[in-house]
């Protein structure tokens, strides 16, 4: 999901990361309209208006999420040098530690021979939504769309 961060003239993060889109191509799936965000950006640039959700406090990763990212890095590098079995072990460990994290699970799909737009993605998306859409950023009200929709 494209992620946008607003940074002001003093390099201060005015609005932390949120999933936003440049078009409505995936609006049916995500439930997020691009127009709302574009209007907010225009108001910020022209009038300095800052939306209420900009005050959202983003929590840091927990230890499992940090460790998952380290396993992911080893997995990606092992794959790059042809150590496929080593790579798969670390991808699996990363997924075990952060099973709902798109940057771990979905990002590894094409590297593990899966399809990031296929059945496994919709399975992940359903589990993610059922868990309350956990995200280190501004929470968004996403559309409920299962793999059979």
């Amino acid at each position: 999901m494209p992620t946008v961060i607003w940074v002001d003239e003093n390099d201060i993060i005015i609005r932390p990361n949120a999933g936003e889109f440049g078009s409505d191509t995936f609006a049916e799936l995500t439930g997020i309209s691009c127009a709302d965000h574009m209007n907010q950006v225009k108001s910020w640039v022209k009038e300095g208006a800052i939306p209420d959700d900009a005050n959202h406090i983003v929590e840091d990763f927990n230890q499992n999420e940090i460790t998952a990212r380290l396993h992911f890095r080893i997995a990606a590098n092992a794959l790059r040098v042809g150590l496929n079995e080593v790579s798969e072990q670390h991808f699996a460990k990363a997924e075990e530690l952060a099973p709902l994290d798109f940057t771990i699970v979905r990002a590894s799909m094409p590297l593990r021979g899966g399809n990031p737009f296929g059945e496994e993605f919709f399975d992940l998306y359903e589990r993610y939504q059922n868990a309350g859409s956990p995200y280190h950023g501004i929470p968004r009200q996403t559309a409920r769309l299962g793999k059979n929709d």
């Binding site: 999901m1 494209p2 992620t3 946008v4 961060i5 607003w6 940074v7 990361n17 910020w44 640039v45």
Partner: peptide, 8 residues
């Protein structure tokens, strides 16, 4: 300048 940092 104001900046939009977009990651995808």
């Amino acid at each position: 300048k104001k900046k939009l940092l977009v990651a995808f």
